[in-house]
Design a protein around this nucleic acid. Sequence first.
DNA 1: TTGTATGCGTTATCAT
DNA 2: ATGATAACGCATACAA
Lengths: 343, 343
Amino acid sequence: MSKITLKDLAKMLKMSISTVSKGLNDSYEISEATKKKIRQLAEKHNYQPNLFAKNLKIGKTNTIGIIIPFMANPVQSQILEGAHKAALENNYHIVFMQSRDNNIIEKSCIEFLINQNVDGIMISPASQESNVEYIKHVHENITPIILFDRVEYPLETHKVGVNSFVGTYNATKHLLEIGRKRIAVLCGKNLGVTSERLNGYLKALEDNSISIDQDLIIYCDYNKTKEQMDYELKKELMKLMKQENAPDAILGTTDTLTTRVLGILSETKYSVPEDLAVIGFANTELAQSLNPSLSTIKQPAFDIGYIATNKLIRLSNEKDRSDFPYESILLETTIQLRNSTKI
Amino acid sequence: MSKITLKDLAKMLKMSISTVSKGLNDSYEISEATKKKIRQLAEKHNYQPNLFAKNLKIGKTNTIGIIIPFMANPVQSQILEGAHKAALENNYHIVFMQSRDNNIIEKSCIEFLINQNVDGIMISPASQESNVEYIKHVHENITPIILFDRVEYPLETHKVGVNSFVGTYNATKHLLEIGRKRIAVLCGKNLGVTSERLNGYLKALEDNSISIDQDLIIYCDYNKTKEQMDYELKKELMKLMKQENAPDAILGTTDTLTTRVLGILSETKYSVPEDLAVIGFANTELAQSLNPSLSTIKQPAFDIGYIATNKLIRLSNEKDRSDFPYESILLETTIQLRNSTKI
DNA sequence: TTGTATGCGTTATCAT
DNA sequence: ATGATAACGCATACAA
């Protein structure tokens, strides 16, 4: 029941190994008649080339590395699902690593992947300035790197993410349309996605002639523990709510922040959406199980993974990278309005 | 910047390739002095053996296959995280596949993994009777298979899952303690985990002298679409609620069912926990963001993945599998009581 | 204790 | 159009 090899096929066909190899690789040197015979026998025995031998010979691994912050996270696992599909279709393997939003772990992930001889790396950076020099060095000298998800990062390469600006712009616009005027916005400190998402919010206010109040912009530090983050966010929020000019809506710029703030609010006397309308980035199916159901900005996470992986695989096969200029692909988000922003 | 090979090291050390190889593999044939020299140089140049050459030679791939129903699912992705850690620690790779709860896809996943020459396969079966004969055949003749998560499946092998019985027993007991007597239970049709989880529920009722009402046992068909499933579950539930003897609590035996029923209830006039207390299997952090926060039976998903992977790796390295009898490891669940079951 | 030679399953170069 | 042979990097049986 052991694997069939070229040698086996050659013996059965009474041909040489190299003829069989060339036949299966559709070489112009082999006659159609022979190719047909070879293919038929290979098919019959379900011949599968030994990837280890092949890769050893070719010097490629047909493997790409993917570095994500956390895999047990709805967006990330959906991205991974898309990446998985693309890899499968191209006969590639994936080695995935988790940076846990930590620069040092991130670097060791990259080093590990390089040692694994991957043909390329996809990374969603731990932060806007994590390992910039090192990543640049790897990209230029060792193996191609492309960015996904968190694409606001100083590296010239392919980037696949979402149009953050439009997502928060539309969400903010919606809040204004239902009559909310004091919109608090939750941002990730040092997170690459923050600036564009904040810009969308600011532009929407500006376009609707609402003055901007810096107090309504709340930054949360992802480097702290969940408990610490929740505690600080709650404090900040409660301070605002007690002011004369209390907010009447909340916009979450990341999945994490959007879902956590709901838990925080449920512990307080403020109700959603009566006191505070809530909308934000969130990719969880659970949004509709929440009470009230949560209005969300949904990212095409699967597509991000799928497209990015295809890009990387193609890039890793280019002889000369300068032939193909780098692209930034920003997919559009979709807004799902539910009860948390009901008028 | 290309990789350093044994040949390079040998040249620098003025030794033969085989001496260096043996030295690095700590062979008894090599003197300590030489070993030391070899190791130092290898360390200095960060030598990493080429896995493709090594595997080609050894005939092992150092790769295991993992088949899960869906990866973008909290429990599954947490299991995968544990598996990932174990694999990393043992210098193994993971190729993961998704069966999408479908027997046919499941079979093709197995075939794919066999073609990849994996050293073993971990599987969470699509259903209780999916591909039984084929899986048995693979396990006995091709590559070892172990079961995780959904371990109620007719195959003699290592199994790593949770103690389903105790989980639902305790949850049911809790519902009784807070005074609920008419507990509806949501089950997955044809799902391996169902029987034990249902048994836990039944035993708890029995121990508390509550008579069993078959009408309160609701089966949901995982082969239908989400919309269809939701529709049918809602209908069933509403029918019960209109009866004289309406249920006053719901127990969900899977993550999917527990979270979905919340969404369904929020569309009705019935409130949680006043009309219906809700508790069930669920591994999502979001449980506390829900309103009311959801009481859950939590599975040690990370541990399941970690332990199962270690088991499989060890099993794949046994010369004679019969030396080591198969084990069934059932980890305990934990119950987190929150507002959805408040008295 | 160290070195030489062989082969794992491919692909590719060079005959024939 | 087909076949013999070398090489990829490694481990190992055997020779020295």
